[in-house]
Amino acid sequence: MDFGAIHEYLPLYRDALFLTMRIGWQGILLAFVIGLAATIILHFRIPVLRQLTSFYIELFRNTPLLVQLFFIYFALPKVGLRITPALCGMVGLGLLGGAYMAETFRSGLENVPLIQSESAASLGMSRMQAFRYVVLPQAVSSSIPGLVANVIFLLKETSVFSTVSLMDLMFTAKDLIGMYAKTVECLFLLVVFYLIMLLPVSILGSIVERRMRRAEFGS
């Protein structure tokens, strides 16, 4: 191991980490918004939108992120819509994640027994109130493990950003290997930086999960 090289590359990896995190989290935030919107559309069976949403979910769950990014970044400019690599990464991640988040929310909603909303209705709650105060909290709590898994999955998916010239962690490592051929050092740093990015998410995820579950079952 050439520790001089590692020292020299550290700032580049740090920049890449910040870029990956920034675009990753923006994309994940977008994914949450899209996922929630899609879930509500599906749950309340809003006509037309429901069919469109189902189509969107199947489209993005069954194509790789790489293909989606290629399409957004290389094909859309041909019809006059050019977006920056960073925006492309964020939108791509948001659309892919939105489809996964919607499915996770849906399974959480299906987990809530029908009797819960019936009971809420018998107490005189409106459909919206029942959803907001009775069904959704239970659904969110039971989908937490799935959501955390999605977040980690999406952060790892950032490794295909290189295709749209974003200097994410993966591309930084490949680029440095191409220029200086310090393979072992570059790959070592790559693994370390992915762990720096993802371990806290995993740990935080399990803490959140425990807390949310306490709300569900009591401590």
């Binding site: 970044y73 290389f74 400019p77 041909k78 050019r82 690599p85 290189s162 295709t163 010239s165 200097m167 591309f171 490949k174 680029d175």
Partner: peptide
């Protein structure tokens, strides 16, 4: 610099005016 992995991608990006 705007870096790409492969010739094909760099070429398309350049044609797109990136």
């Amino acid at each position: 610099l705007q870096k790409y992995d492969a010739y094909a991608e760099a070429k398309t990006a350049f044609e797109n005016g990136s």
